[in-house]
Write a protein that binds this DNA or RNA. Structure first.
Lengths: 293, 293
DNA sequence: AGGCTTATCTGACTAAAGTCAGAGAATGGA
DNA sequence: TCCATTCTCTGACTTTAGTCAGATAAGCCT
């Protein structure tokens, strides 16, 4: 790790907590405890289930309950039971609560604008662009990879998106039944592995490894959500699978891909995969790759 | 103000308070109340006067006093009276306090590194560059201009730096006595104005306006601290002086400059000043400019 | 139906953060 | 010299934020 890079990040942290943090703390609470203000904001125009609220803000259930009572007493929030599940309650903003939240929103806008107004238009654009870049790359850094059983709803969600994307992009469409298999069993340890990339509690990518004969493994099901592309997640998923492959004792990895998936091919080249002669009869493949581990 | 820009700033604020803020809050306190941790950090290796501490952290005097007692009880801080003024006390770190602070420092480094480690080298560089840009432009936005009497120590400080810079940059050196005047009286309202640019309580630039005959004013003493260049401060100082000039009823502004001050000439061109024939005998000038208001 | 789990709430508690009023010593200016 | 001001400290207080241990009701599983 480069020392000067670390120093720059520290300067940034300091500058930003001073400017953004300090202001958000005082300016945006309107004489209300921060906890209540956060809740009010998080409830949002459509209301939210209490448990979701708790989870998002990572607060104790008793504490949330008390905060909601306080907001109710101020006439800003209503809680109701109509959720299908009789245990679950929803917090919804009243008319007054919506108005109050709109005020917060306006203040938030004002605060944001206060960063921009003193700058000339060229510098404004530069600031906004740099902020977008920082935000994106911080997001990239916050991505976490976790092994997932292929039967879970999360895994299903990823695979559905993956198949959907193939169907849209392949010139011939895509029918999983005609394609080379990667069954649940083949993606379950120790026969194989299915990994999901998470960002803020949402799955944003996946990948699978088939251990096969124990010598030559196969990489399958590499998918990244459109909203999370360009963050280097595919690289990390692939690295995760390769590490797993090495630990399992595999000597080489293989994969095949369609010619329309150009960014995937670029990734495989970058990661040291060599294009080789077709090693199977996958009807949707145009390129076959291999890498020694 | 562009709406999408405001939206981006808000997204940034959100992302950053989540990542930086949340972590700083929990990770950097080492089981110690945040207040104490902040004090420990702010005291620094050389100690600090208690009143300065109070002002920087904007805390109640009683509260600071109590926090210091707590840190003393832990053997981390000593307060002493040797300050010249018998009322003022200094807080100084003990050996143990210095060690504790070093630990915080290391944690801070670690926290910073945690943003970088998940990224590949290319993205690391991009993140660091974008952070530097954001930091710089936030700083730029935080600059404030205030009228200052030319006799004050702050004004003296700026003028000394200004003269020092001229002496270094002009091929012939610089002797204020031989140059066209801008006396204290000429920079004091209503005969003239002296403005200082402030950043975090430090003067980082200045500029002056001589009202002269009430028709044609003169811009003088434009200086920006090296550490604050590239932030558009000179532009803002010049705009401030022009606004003042208009309010005073001036019809045009003049200024002269040395050929070595190329960035100044670029600024004047950008701001609509036209190069004109010499209108005075300033020995250090090579270019004369004028602008109708 | 019975037992386990989940979602929410209440009561009882603690620690941190901060405010306010004034006391006491030192200093500065008239 | 005297009076107002400055700086620090202490005591007494409030509010916020948060934790923990149940109680209660509803749903899930067999």
């Amino acid at each position: 790790m480069d020392e000067s890079q670390v120093a720059q990040v520290r300067r940034f942290n300091r500058a930003v907590t001073q400017h953004v943090g300090a202001l958000e703390g005082s300016y945006l609470r309107r004489g209300r405890p921060l906890g209540q203000a956060r809740l009010l904001h998080e409830i949002g125009p459509d209301g939210i289930e209490v448990r979701a609220l708790r989870e998002r803000l990572r607060l104790d259930s008793g504490y949330v309950s008390r905060l909601l009572r306080a907001l109710e007493a101020q006439g800003l929030v209503r809680t109701e039971n109509r959720t299908g599940d009789g245990r679950v309650r929803r917090a919804v903003l009243t008319e007054k609560g919506r108005a109050e939240r709109a005020t917060y929103d306006a203040l938030s806008d004002e605060l944001a604008a206060s960063f921009l107004t003193p700058l000339d238009p060229a510098r404004r654009e530069r600031l906004v662009a740099a902020m977008a870049e920082v935000e994106r790359l911080l997001k990239a850094g916050a991505v976490e990879l976790r092994l997932e059983a292929p039967q879970t709803p999360t895994a299903r969600f990823c695979l559905d998106r993956y198949f959907g994307e193939l169907a849209r992009r392949f010139e011939t469409g895509f029918d999983p039944g005609r394609s080379n298999s990667a069954t649940d069993a083949e993606m379950t340890p120790p026969a194989g592995y299915f990994v999901v990339a998470w960002l803020d509690g949402e799955p944003v990518g996946c990948g699978a490894l088939k251990v096969g004969d124990g010598i030559t493994g196969e990489v399958k099901r590499m998918w990244i959500a459109p909203s999370a592309r360009g963050l280097g997640i595919a690289s990390r998923v692939l690295e995760w699978l390769e590490t797993q492959a090495r630990e399992t004792g595999l000597r080489r990895l293989r994969l095949e891909t369609n010619r329309t998936l150009t960014e995937a091919q670029a990734l495989y080249h970058r990661k040291g995969y060599q294009e080789v002669a077709p090693f199977n009869a996958e009807p949707y493949a145009h390129h076959w790759f291999e890498k020694r581990l």
